[in-house]
Design a protein around this nucleic acid. Structure first.
Lengths: 318, 318
DNA sequence: GATGGCCATCTCCCAAAGTGATCGCCATCA
DNA sequence: TGATGGCGATCACTTTGGGAGATGGCCATC
């Protein structure tokens, strides 16, 4: 069995048809047929059921498919590993929650770009779910997401904690106010955003029925919308410090059990990290890990009741 | 880059010479030269330094080598996975500490052999170190060893606890006796045996200088030697219950912190377990895990001071 | 029954891989 | 210093596996 055969196999499995796989492989159908047959003979099992239109995997084929993918990934990685002589270069794609990117990454990224000019750095925004999938699939090298991430395929490093707060318009003086207010909505970045789920749970625990959603493309529009009284949202409190809206929205602090979320950096556990990624991790830990105990931690362990923005609320009120 | 090229590469790296690698690959030297050169061109780096006699890996080659090995292992595994239709068959090699094999495995193995007659079952004895290496290398499918095993490559499942005791001749009434006795030795199965190290540490903590070693091939000879007063040893107490020497050696109980060792079953984390291995694990957990809480656990948490064999000793004496 | 999509099979062909001989390099040794 | 032996590089050649293209059969659809 050769890696070339597995490439053919994988393409056929993906397309469900030899003819279309042949196109992708820049060859003709008869070759695909022949090589699949050769592969079947090599492993001693039939891999596809042939139909009048297309083919489908047999059980044996289904068992082989993940290996085909792993082999091709491994070869890719091998190539990179050979070329990677220890000095970071090439492309590094980092996934990040939108909020994390907005609040935290700027100094890290500029520092990295300066320190490793040979690396093309790209930030890929997404929700925790999307980014986990992207890391596992290999389309991003690593990502900042909401922890904890328990996936055994992924390596997880805690980076910092965020303190979430409910943001609402200044007219809202307690969340109970929301119970009657029918036209208030949840303003979220994406339907799949993990903060949305958290906010719904949080309201549910207080007997507030989940308002309807409103999706926005950027954080600024969410904040503008919240300030305008169109909706409420749940975001890291810190987001306000760099925002023009810091004085125009009400901030509802939350008890630590609800407020604190760990942001972790995830990367594939099986793939050896590129030098570019290792260097990134080094800078990130330098930037975030000491900061965690020194400043953030103290704030979080202190009073969560004090005023932020214009509103002071005791936990009991929320 | 193709898996075939990597096979060539790996063979050359292993032999340190193209000519000899060619023999192993059943081809001629010129082909090896050509394919290595093609591979070097494909990855864009030189992989070997050519000398007048033989070749040596470059840094890039050293980075590639582990991938070559992983790819070929992965292809092997893929083949097995395709052929493995869920009913255990084929060869299953289980590593085990000698003591574990003697005391624990018999019923499990007979049960397994009866339940899965299509599997050729083999037991491969060894020390914890040896077995860990064997599992990682793939020469055994899984192994019972002294836990905990922290290796990230390995999956570890606790199976049962053993209670270790120091065994000595009936003439020895306290371990302090050993301080003067110059000709007493440690009787161990192998130099690398983890019990040996434990015993030395244990004696050291009591101020007893480490006696010299005596190695034996079988447990029975160790026990005979201990009974004859030639040496002392550290073994699971349970070993005596199936031994003719149970009445002719003195047993020194130990406090739980020193006595208890967890026996775990380790297997490769990355390789998908064969059906034969999965079935084995199923039976093993059935056999050992319920037993752990029900009988063994109680005994261990109860008095460790009571008499076993003929000697009663308080912890303080040991 | 005509059509179209798809897979299997066959033949032809070629480039890639294998073969064997030769050359050059270098260490060793007489 | 010259002979020898081991080893890799290179070259000319042969072999063959894989790719191309044509054809036929099957089946669903219209």
């Amino acid at each position: 069995m050769e890696s070339g055969d597995l490439r053919f196999f994988e393409a056929v499995a993906r397309h469900g048809a030899m003819t279309r796989a042949a196109e992708e492989l820049h060859t003709v159908q008869s070759n695909v047929t022949a090589r699949i047959r050769a592969l079947e003979q090599a492993v001693g099992a039939s891999l596809f059921e042939r139909h009048s239109v297309g083919v489908t995997l047999t059980d044996a084929g289904r068992r082989l498919l993940p290996y085909a993918q792993r082999v091709s990934r491994l070869l890719e990685e091998a190539k990179r590993a050979v070329q990677d002589d220890g000095t970071p270069r090439g492309r590094l794609i980092i996934g990040s929650l939108e909020t994390t990117a907005a609040m935290r990454l700027a100094p890290l990224l500029t520092g990295y770009a300066k320190a490793y000019p040979q690396v093309d750095l790209a930030i890929h925004p997404g929700t925790t779910c999307e980014l986990i999938a992207a890391v596992k699939q290999g389309s991003v090298d690593g990502a900042f997401v909401c922890g904890p991430v328990l996936d055994p395929e992924l390596d997880q490093r805690p980076m910092f904690q965020e303190e979430l707060s409910v943001l609402a318009s200044m007219a809202v003086h307690s969340l109970d106010y929301l119970i009657g207010a029918g036209n208030i909505r949840l303003a979220v970045l994406r339907a799949g955003c993990s903060y949305r789920q958290r906010l719904e749970e949080l309201l549910a625990r207080r007997g507030i029925p989940a308002p309807r959603l409103m999706e926005f493309g950027t954080l600024e529009t969410i904040l503008a919308c919240v300030a305008a009284g169109l909706g409420i949202t749940l975001l890291p409190r810190r987001i306000l410090s760099s925002s023009q809206f810091s004085d125009s929205v009400a901030v509802f602090g939350l008890p630590p059990s609800e407020a604190l979320v760990e942001t972790v950096f995830i990367s594939r556990r099986d793939a050896a990290p590129s030098s570019a990624l290792t260097a990134f991790l080094g800078l990130a830990e330098q930037a975030f890990r000491p900061g965690m105990e020194a400043s953030e931690g103290n704030v979080l362990n202190g009073s969560l009741l004090r005023q932020v923005g214009k509103t002071v609320l005791a936990h009991q009120n929320i």
